[in-house]
Nucleic acid binder design. Structure first.
Lengths: 218, 218
DNA sequence: GCTCTGAGAGTAATGACCTCA
DNA sequence: ATGAGGTCATTACTCTCAGAG
């Protein structure tokens, strides 16, 4: 406020403006009267339901919005008939009703996008974990297989000489559905938020990278 | 069009709107006094780069937007000093500059969200495929392991009696990094768009479900 | 064709609320 | 506690396009 000498009620001088720019300026010009300026006005804080009608506003009243919302729920599109009827009921210009619907559709689209985003994110995380688990399991299985083959090799070679099994310790539980190779602590990383920009979502990340990704991104 | 008698070339007079007030209300109330109505004006169609002069309405001019955009590129926030300077340079109300920045930030946020969404989606798809592949591989490995163990069993039992290997055919290439269990045709599903609502992103989907998901969702 | 209309994207502006300094 | 600026949500308007008459 200090570096704005006179601005309490704004006095905007229209002559300053180039003729080229339309409308916006005009609005600015007629601001010489009051220019709402920012009224810091202790709005109704806790009790809000009234939605404040006393003040000159350009917001639709709660009932109006309710009815509109209800209608929107039934059908997002708006045929002229419905539009006119609604306008009459609400005491609004049909144009306003149309505008309201358009804006509502836009909002709806956005909300949907966000929902899907978070959905997708959750799913993605779960998949990363799953992938990690599977990678671990693949490694484990390969290891076991390797062992088993070594064993076979050994058995074949020493074939009829040594009938006793020397080191067959790792294959007994290999078939089980254990799948518990992932440290449960990994789940702890969820719940952190505030992600950074430009994280690379590499599809080829390995287990470790996946975890780093989660740490970074989640 | 019947209920809108005259609207020939429209002109749209902003001064109609009272400075500080009802605005909506006024529009709403005098439903019969034909407010602005809209458009009809043969805009420049093909020629687009100009995009600024023909239209007599608000919207900042191209240069104004350029300068603002440039400034926004440097820094998304706006200190009063910069704001006032910009306002002066552009011949705008400082308030307008502030508004522009606010709206710009909002737009930016949205765009970022969308970008991240598509990024994430790609990544997710890739991961699904990867998961599918891994699941297949796990199955394959388990199978091989099972075979190997059967073989071992056989060898141990028939131990010193039959030194010849009877059916050891599947474990020779098991260690390789082949990993080519996924039909390359799967990649063909990408490129289809127009997704449906409310797809369930199950984290526990198996390979087949994952593919169905892709078909549904992508 | 041409006009009118509604939809969707983009944008300007406002109101309410929040947060620091 | 006041006020400048910020975010969010909303309202309104512009422009472009596609379809109906």
């Amino acid at each position: 406020m200090n570096h704005r000498p006179f601005q309490d009620n704004m006095m905007f001088i229209p002559q300053l403006y180039p003729a080229d720019a339309p409308y916006t300026q005009i609005i600015a010009q007629q601001g010489e009267s009051k220019k709402p300026k920012r009224r810091r006005g202790k709005k109704n804080k806790g009790g809000e339901n009234g939605a404040s009608e006393a003040n000159r506003k350009r917001k639709l009243s709660a009932e109006q919005v309710n009815l509109l919302e209800q209608n929107f729920g039934n059908e997002h599109k708006l045929e002229s008939e419905r539009k006119d009827r609604l306008a009459l009921e609400l005491g609004l210009d049909p144009r306003q009703v149309a505008v309201w619907f358009q804006n509502r559709r836009a909002r709806w689209k956005n909300k949907k996008l966000e929902e899907e985003y978070s959905h997708l994110k959750k799913s993605h995380e779960a998949n990363l974990l799953e992938k990690c688990r599977l990678e671990t399991e693949v490694l484990k299985l390969k290891d076991q297989l390797s062992e088993a083959e070594k064993e076979i090799q050994r058995l074949l070679e020493s074939g009829d000489r040594v009938p006793s099994n020397s080191s067959s310790s790792s294959q007994s539980q290999s078939q089980s559905q254990s799948m518990e190779a992932v440290d449960p602590a990994f789940f702890g990383v969820f719940g952190v938020d505030g992600y950074d920009d430009d994280v690379f979502y590499g599809p080829e990340t390995h287990c470790i990278n996946a975890l780093e990704w989660i740490n970074l991104y989640m």
